[in-house]
Design a binder for these strands. Structure first.
Lengths: 238, 238
DNA sequence: TGATGTGAACCCATTCACAGCC
DNA sequence: GGCTGTGAATGGGTTCACATCA
């Protein structure tokens, strides 16, 4: 029952314990904090301390970590390096993930050169572009390939994660190409929401959208401070 | 009771109807779709159709829109341009929001030049940097100012939204400076989670973090396909 | 008839509170 | 005594299903 049994089990179809999405999102945060602690030669940490560092509360931290297994010691806390290892394993960061970048423009090149990718085990397997004049040039230590070769590249290099770095008007077709080529997860930098089949995982990195949400919160904040606001736009227009 | 009454009401402290956070996040998505529809001369839309375009379901769309008021027509649907107007108003996009960008490096300059900002009413009031050699150069049509002038700039230009575009190691101090200068919302591009007072709204645009989440989902997907996986790392290490 | 608007039911995430163990 | 691990309670978000109205 406990994951720390002594035998090697082989899991087959769908036997992975599913961790709630909300908890998965916080794991990289804990990971970063534990890395910093480890660099400072800190070996033990309690859920209380970790909660402060992560801006969460202790109960949530304990619940999140309990999804990984029972790796803490009652009355003491968690071993930093062991917890680090367990989170990395759960997130799949002990593996190397080949990614393909679609778009060799400013953003695509910047991402290709971004050291944080390789640091975290994400290897730029290829950069592709539809512009023939860009094919052959070098971006991020990788020669730019033509987008027509995408299926071949995905197959031969075992790529399962694609990064979209093209202007908004081409983003949907880039996404469709990635899906057809066999990619299962997409990170989208274009300022657009993509239509994708449900089985494709997608994460958005969309500044325009985020700013609009901040705009709403700013408005609420200003209202709360007591700034007078007209509540009926109808009559203002009329 | 209905927001479409005929008199002009003046709301004072905290009278804004609070829309659930989850719904606020979808409003910019609807906005983008309605804009496209409007450009295609489409004047009416039903919750069913909008749901398909947004990748949501009809009930959720109706509930989301109902938070704005009762702007639909039973048996018919919603008027595209009126809905557009209402969403923009609710999000505060009918106002002009001055923003300050902290960091005049590659990312800061790219953001300053990004047309999507001004298109959406976000005006780059200033770009600041701590490097004196960068002060005076031009980024995004705005002269780069020294970070020491931040409080003055925020005050004089009425800035309430800050954008952090500095390396991770400087992000926390940049955030602290913004808060002390009086900014209320922050968009963070640095690959780090910031510690901020609860009253500050923050949105993260963090590729490293998003990729780690995709990595987890890829792992789940591969497990589901029946790839054999060792479930007990303990014994593998030993 | 056909689509909105919305209470009620459901489901997931967070928080509480305490049993269990070091 | 102190801290983890976790059932139970709470709260928010989504979905259902239908009353309501053009």
């Amino acid at each position: 029952m406990n994951a720390r049994s002594n035998s090697v089990e082989v899991m087959t179809t769908a036997s992975r314990r599913r961790i709630p999405e909300a908890a998965v999102i916080r794991l990289p945060l804990y990971l970063r904090i534990l890395n910093d602690l480890s660099a400072d030669n800190c070996t033990q940490i309690s859920s209380d301390q970790l909660a402060v560092l992560a801006g969460q509360n202790a109960a949530k931290v304990r619940k999140d970590l309990s999804y990984l297994g029972s790796y803490g010691t009652r009355g003491v806390g968690y071993d930093v390096s062991y917890l680090l290892y367990q989170i990395q394993r759960e997130l799949g960061l002990n593996k190397s993930w080949p990614v393909v970048i679609v778009g060799a423009g400013n953003l695509g090149q910047a991402l290709g050169n971004y050291g944080g990718l390789s640091e975290r085990g994400f290897v730029v397997a290829a950069v592709v572009d539809s512009d023939p004049s860009k094919v052959g040039s070098v971006a991020g230590g990788v020669r730019v390939s033509h987008v027509d070769d995408l299926p071949l590249i995905v197959q031969s290099k075992g790529v399962s994660i694609g990064i979209i770095a093209v202007p908004a008007q081409y983003a949907q077709s880039a996404a469709d190409l990635l899906v057809r080529a066999g990619v299962g997860s997409i990170l989208n930098f274009a300022p657009i929401i993509l239509n994708l089949p449900a089985e494709i995982h997608i994460r958005k990195v969309d500044m325009a959208l985020e700013l609009q949400i901040l705009s709403y919160h700013e408005q609420c904040r200003m209202d709360a401070r007591g700034v007078a606001v007209v509540s009926d736009p109808e009559s203002v227009i009329a």
